[in-house]
Write a protein that binds this DNA or RNA. Sequence first.
DNA 1: AGCACGCCGACT
DNA 2: GTCGGCGTGCTC
Length: 799
Amino acid sequence: MAIVIAKVIVDVSTAAIDRPFDYQVPEEWEAFIQPGVRVHVPFGPRKVQGFVIGIDETSQVESAKLKPLQSVIDVEPVLTKELLELAKWLKDDTLCFYNDALQVMIPAALRAAYSKIVHVDSSVSLSQKFESLLSKDREVDFQQIEKAKLLPELKHLLQNQLAEIETRIRQRSTPKKQTVYHVASVPEEIGGNAKKQLQVLEWIREKQVSFFTLPQLQQDFSVTGAVVEAMVQKGYLTKKKQEIYREIEMLGDASTDKVVELTDKQNDVLSQIITSADQQQSDVFLLHGITGSGKTEIYLHAIEHTLSLNKEAIMLVPEIALTPQMVLRFKMRFGEQVAVMHSGLSIGEKYDEWRKVIRKEVKVVVGARSAIFAPFENLGLLILDEEHESSYKQEDSPRYHAREVAKWRAEFAHCPVILGSATPSIESYARATKGVYHLVKLPGRANAKPLPPVELIDMREQLKGGNRSMFSIELADAIRDRLAKREQIVLFLNKRGFSSFVLCRDCGSTVQCPNCDISLTYHRMGEALRCHYCGYEEQVPTQCPQCKSEHIRFFGTGTQKVEEELTRLFPEARTLRMDVDTTRTKGAHERILHHFGQKQAEILLGTQMIAKGLDFPDVTLVGVLNADTSLHLADFRAAEKTFQLITQVSGRAGRHEKEGKVIVQTYDPDHYALEYAKMHDYVAFYTKEMQIRKVYEYPPFYYLTHIQISHPDVLVTAEYADKVASWLRDELSNQATVIGPTASAISRIQDRYRYQCIIKYKKEPNLIPVLHQLLKLTRSEWEKQGVRIGIDLHPSTLV
DNA sequence: AGCACGCCGACT
DNA sequence: GTCGGCGTGCTC
């Protein structure tokens, strides 16, 4: 009898473990075990979860060392054949651990949680404290022992073998089950005193349901479970435990979404995509269309066509643009065929949506970045809306870009990809210009409304004129005018790399995070200072920690401060504020927008998150309070990001009947990014930006790789950063330039100093092997000294 | 990563 | 003498 060997990637993300381990498959499971299922395996002295990535009949490992699998977790694979292949590519392409590449593809609910359980023998005399922690089966969580400072006692027990520790793997989420009552035989009449039962029967008759849950019943009238149970006893109803999907709460009007007639231009674009889909070409289309040009309508039609081919579609939307309106639009168009995946959902809800996909109950997925891994097996279309968005790049391992994953999957499935944007990334547009992507354009808004005029206000002039307010005279006048006309205003505060902090007016020092090398951010709520990197929090001091002066106050422009000034200048106006503070709770985002849509406020004030997707007919003025903050980032994409931002925000004004206007306040009105944004001229901006990228040798002319070295000691960090740089210079060909090492812009995060090197290259065949070698070197030797290395192959930002 | 094994200093 | 510090090495 031939033995069956499972190749398993265990759930341990370390360099030494980053390879398949072989396990013997017990005979009775041979039929179950297939690539893509998860298993529990013994691993050294403990038990861990793992992914079966392959089945074999032989093993290089001597058979004496082979252990059998402990148990099988999944009956059906959680990863398709395609996703297993994709993981292999992903780990090589992003230089991450195999395990990380696999884990990123399954919903969080399926990721293992480990806990250590202490099991104590019966009839052992324990301290009272210890005894009180034990459960009925004489078990207790290891962490509780630790917390109660009972470790010495535990150690004693372990030595005398009176207790043992077990690593237990918890499943985070199980399908939600609920009791569902099915109508069996309903009598015409029930006698006696059973008033409530009668009420239930009437309800059933009225609603014409064949099954229901207790909460559903309780929505309409007060009734207890006892009543329904009695009816089950009498045989009127039968009850079943059934799996249900957690319902996703949605606000907004379910106004009918009629299939809109496409314009000629839209039809032209659509037909190109359809042709490509029909011919099973894995073409990449870059759809360049200004805000309001009807890109979404093209997506909807293209998805419809995909469904007509009996294939599936994935559409990615940046997290912040995944608004209820957007979701509603898809739900109305495709009904039950859509699953939605975004970070606003609970772990359980995400798991439910994912199961709809793997069970083939849906054909369309709309979601943020990670939805690109939706386990479809018959993909016909992939869409990335707002393809330039930096949120498509994951900033921790695996550092993948959803655009690259989409292209890989399209290649695999022989289907097209649509990258849509009003302001495509410079890289994508360059590829389209070179013919690598198909460039399709939608000039002009679908409703033929002109783009709103953009006015740049020179804030230096305001200051000279004696206006020290954060509102220029022009903007203040415009706000007053709109308020008088009962129109709405959106004010945008550019907070990229910028925040309010506490400053001492005597010595000029700011309050810094004790762990990270940055200023703490002032939060009005609770008068707290918080670090945005590590979450450290403290109270606002009354004295300057440096010079003991009492002249310490917050400085900078937070949304709260703007809000205060707004109330001062326009006491009659109602303002809604939308930023990280006011949208922290679930559904808050939706609520604020809903209120604004209902005209419960005249002014919507917010940061990045209001730049996208808002579409309110009465918004006729958009103000950008400070265009400069993103302009002066130490990042080669600063101009690009600013241009995108201004363009996006401008798109919020005058989308309907009323004419809109945009006012941008800046200290640098001559900057080309602002000038071209004012002219609504993407191509001119692109041309200018490309010239600059060429001169300074930045992407897309050169590729970059970002290497970060960190250690608790600054000198050690610098020393190893030097080693990395010189080692790279030796190993790489002279076609590649190594820049640095330099201290990172935020030179310390979570008590670790950070240095960085940048590799710049046009073509470097050795790059991947050399980086692999570097990782091997550092992981085997340097890691012991506490040196950590992070490699980002196509960094989205250098700060 | 975790966990065991193993080899040297200060304690019941 | 033993308890326990953390260096080293392994996990199919």
